[in-house]
Amino acid sequence: MSKHDITPGTPDADALAAEYVLHLLDPEERARVEALLDVDGAWRGRVADWSERLGLMADEIDPVTPPAHLRARVERLVAEDRAAGTDKPRARRSGWLQALLGGGVAATLAVLLLMVALPRIQPPDSGPLYAADVATADQALLVEAHYDPDAAQLTITRVAGSAPPGRDLQMWLLTEDQPPHSVGILPEDGTLSIPVIPFWGQRIPTGRFAISEEPPGGSTDEIGPTGTVLAVGEVQEI
């Protein structure tokens, strides 16, 4: 096929960014791009460029005055929004994404990623526990992360899926104020337990975990994934 082959692993980043802007990607591809947008400034630049470029076509759309009652309704809804105290949404990790998409797609993504329920038993005398299901939309890859602040211990269990041949799966912690932090290379099976220093421990509750496929031994880039981000999961208190 052409250089615009769509086989996973050989994405033409620029074409993919254009398709993302056009809203042509299926939910799984879209989730992959959105994961990249959160961690990769070059991707945000690509998407912004295509948004401006293709947005020129909107020039030919004629304005149509909406009915007057709509203005009154929107005005009322906004006043109620303030009254309800929801006027200042809390800062979110996916701020950029939310800003661009207004939340709909991001919410869908969160639902897709959190489809598996988390039946867990909390010991009676412990503090809060945190967990994330890091999964592709089809659950072909599913990794559970579990964080116990009292024990300062992160436990990672691979439930389903494996790395592409000749590649490793690398797990990342995505935070609001730091570059992606490598948690480690996932073992082929079994559970990985990692001690967590307070600097990262205090960021886990508001963070997300991501998994990328990387060369053996992990990303060659000091500050983040070099391979494709396969899955992202939000941390939830359980």
């Binding site: 809203h23 948004s51 401006e52 947005g55 909107a58 701020g95 800003a99 661009l100 998409l101 207004g102």
Partner: peptide
């Protein structure tokens, strides 16, 4: 959405009409 998300407009690097049209179109 515009009312709720306007504070994040700056973060995405889009021109103002492109941002608004993107929100509407999506």
């Amino acid at each position: 959405k515009i009312w709720r998300n306007a504070d994040r407009y700056k973060a995405n690097g889009l021109s103002p009409m492109t941002w608004l049209i993107t929100v509407a179109r999506n």
